[in-house]
């Protein structure tokens, strides 16, 4: 496309830079599987042989299993709640005019521009003042707060790309408002809902600082990993865990993209309704 515009000569220099930059992006991640399979407790070169015992250790680490289950619980609950809230807000902002719409929307998007430590501090203050106990539910409260703006952004795009006359056609054909939402609106914004669930789940699963502040006796996975980082002997199995998590999220990502493309093919809508990328 740009070849015709005479910038082709600059391409080679940029190309070299681009590959160097990719190397920079991948350098740390590449170490993850290397040390996960390295037969030494010490994380350093030279490597000392292949082993899969660090993966075996993961099987026996009870606290790890617990924190993983906690994180899944927090992630699923937070993403479902944030997406439900997001559906309401996205629907309100794309379909209706009401007094105070702009400031209200701005306010609910605020967590997007607040450093997470501030959210953590603010929430722990109120929780301490109210005398509540810290638990996974307090973490969920925090995660729903920071995930909702992402859900709103994704779902607003999905709702906005929906032709309004489709809903009117449904009403015109005798369907109720509720029936219209279920039979027309929901199926058409489904890719956006799936994207929102995936993104919110990923954010929650990876979130450390709010969980660090708000977690009680039950820890989430990042808080568990943070604790393990202090013990050099545990590092290889932490790396093994990281490798598995990377594979899991890539699998999830691929699945999400597959379903998005499938539904796009089915409905003939290309690049609408809020895909992942």
């Amino acid at each position: 496309m740009s070849g015709e515009t005479g910038t082709h000569s600059k391409g080679t220099g940029l190309r070299v830079y681009a590959f160097a930059y990719l190397l920079f992006l991948y350098a740390p991640v590449a170490l993850l599987p290397i040390f996960a399979f390295n037969d030494s407790q010490i994380i350093a070169f030279p490597l000392s042989g292949f082993t899969d015992r660090w993966f075996g250790e993961l099987w026996e680490a009870e606290p790890l299993h617990e924190s993983l289950m906690n994180s899944l619980f927090v992630g699923i609950t937070s993403s479902v709640l944030a997406t439900l809230l997001g559906i309401c807000a996205a629907r309100a902002s794309t379909r209706y005019e009401f007094p105070g719409k702009k400031p209200m929307m701005g306010f609910v998007m605020l967590p997007l521009v607040l450093p997470e430590i501030i959210v953590g501090v603010a929430m722990i203050n109120i929780i301490v003042q109210l005398g509540m106990d810290l638990s996974l539910w307090t973490v969920i409260l925090g995660h729903v707060l920071i995930c909702t703006p992402f859900a709103i952004a994704i779902l607003s795009a999905a709702f906005a790309s929906l032709d309004r006359s489709l809903e009117e056609a449904s009403l015109d054909l005798g369907e109720t408002r509720m029936g219209t939402f279920l039979r027309v609106t929901l199926p058409l914004v489904m890719p956006g809902i799936v994207s929102s669930l995936l993104i919110c789940f990923t954010i929650s699963l990876d979130e450390f600082i709010i969980a660090f502040f708000l977690t009680g006796a039950d820890t989430t996975l990042p808080v568990y990993i943070w604790g393990q980082l202090r013990f050099p002997g545990r590092l290889p199995s932490v790396f093994a865990l990281g490798t598995l998590m990377l594979l899991a999220s890539l699998l999830l990502l691929t699945l999400g993209e597959y379903f998005r493309r499938r539904s796009a093919r089915k409905t003939g809508i290309e690049h609408t309704a809020g895909g992942l990328v």
């Binding site: 032709d163 009117e168 056609a169 015109d172 054909l173």
Partner: peptide
């Protein structure tokens, strides 16, 4: 009387064919 209770039906400018 809401649209879904009126004895009228509409052909929309965009046709509004449900894509799914």
């Amino acid at each position: 009387v809401p649209a879904n209770h009126r004895p009228t039906n509409m052909v929309f400018q965009s046709y509004a064919i449900f894509p799914h």
